[in-house]
Design a protein around this nucleic acid. Sequence first.
DNA 1: GTTAATTTTTAGACTAGTCTAAAAAAAGTT
DNA 2: AACTTTTTTTAGACTAGTCTAAAAATTAAC
Lengths: 221, 221
Amino acid sequence: MLRLTQSEENYLKAIFTLSQDAEGAISTNELAEKMLTKASSVTDMLKKLCEKELLEYQKYQGCALTNTGKSHALAIIRKHRLWETFLVDKLSFGWDEVHEIAEQLEHIQSTELTDRLDEFLGFPKVDPHGEPIPGKDGRIESVSNRILLSEAVVGMKGIIMGVEDDQTEFLQYLNKIGLHLGTPIDIVDKLSFDGSIIVNMDGRQIQFSITIAKQISIKPL
Amino acid sequence: MLRLTQSEENYLKAIFTLSQDAEGAISTNELAEKMLTKASSVTDMLKKLCEKELLEYQKYQGCALTNTGKSHALAIIRKHRLWETFLVDKLSFGWDEVHEIAEQLEHIQSTELTDRLDEFLGFPKVDPHGEPIPGKDGRIESVSNRILLSEAVVGMKGIIMGVEDDQTEFLQYLNKIGLHLGTPIDIVDKLSFDGSIIVNMDGRQIQFSITIAKQISIKPL
DNA sequence: GTTAATTTTTAGACTAGTCTAAAAAAAGTT
DNA sequence: AACTTTTTTTAGACTAGTCTAAAAATTAAC
Ligand SMILES: [Mn+2]
Ligand SMILES: [Mn+2]
Ligand SMILES: [Mn+2]
Ligand SMILES: [Mn+2]
């Protein structure tokens, strides 16, 4: 089994994530922005990962993960989400406190550990932010029909199913307004000029900017 | 708080461990052997750690940890032993399977995590190999009067209290002969020419070489 | 379809950590 | 005290990962 450095793993994960919502290849700049690094560093890394056959890369053409690259990425995401679940379920951390720690724990190398942790947690399907946890085989069970809050239409009712997990302040804000997984909401209004969404939640009216609404997913009822 | 690399942390831990049974400063070669590296690499690292005031170092004089260096080392050892305890107590790993994984987990940076893990485990006093777990404050509670099996005298009775944990094969061997923490033994004989010790354990006679006997500690009864 | 702006790659440099080989210091031996 | 052996340090090189600045390729604009 190919042994990867933490940096290589982080690149694979970033490429995988970017590929989730983008069609086709991932550009060097896009990746540089995600990785908080410079394009020249990305080029170097792409060459290396291409050499290891974890992705396909041709000069000026961006990159795309190979199947091997994908399963490595999925293994890291699996670990990340299992550890987040452990921290919240077993050590009573808040959902806003676990991402940074999981960024470290996801690099621990031991399939046995990952699988036993999975079992210890009762084979959870989603992490504390509602994101699906890939199985041992790398398959992600498709989560029930979800849409982004930003795409909801006025009059729709729904239940909070997932939130972006990588900004502590965002999650703390959600805590403050009492939003958590499972919270039911009504879409009351949508401001056409800036895309803001006004929802009714626990009898209160709350207004979300389009930026925020893109970071929350709901299951329409 | 000073941020250390994994390599720096490993050096501090090694120096601390070597200082436990040696008087005075630790020599460059001694450290190189422990770290499975070359003396020249050690010299470079000693300069760096001295610069950061984690240890005292003068050319050709070896090194010794400062108080800051000691508390860093103790924090790492605390994490190592807490994680080993977690793996054995919560994930049902064998005591021969946890050291390598703990070598990785000990570098996770989060005091909050460490302290919550400690609580989750019920504030254990010793790890799965009988080694004491330093507290939050870095203090090691002195473990009850123990001696090395190699120092036991014929006729003595005792209870297995601790074993070295860094050789998988050694621990597997102990599993095979049914030796674990708490096992009572009688010292039956000692061979003067090679230091071998013969003990009675669960009604069976077992012979340990001096090398093995140095890796087992007992509480005399 | 030529020029301008943007993206991407290359070239060269830097740090951390390691290595080998050689020089210097310390310790041991007659 | 002089010579030998061992230990330790220095010097120079290498890899991984990053950076800046400049060159090259692609894309957009006129
Ligand atoms: Mn996360
Ligand atoms: Mn998450
Ligand atoms: Mn251990
Ligand atoms: Mn141990």
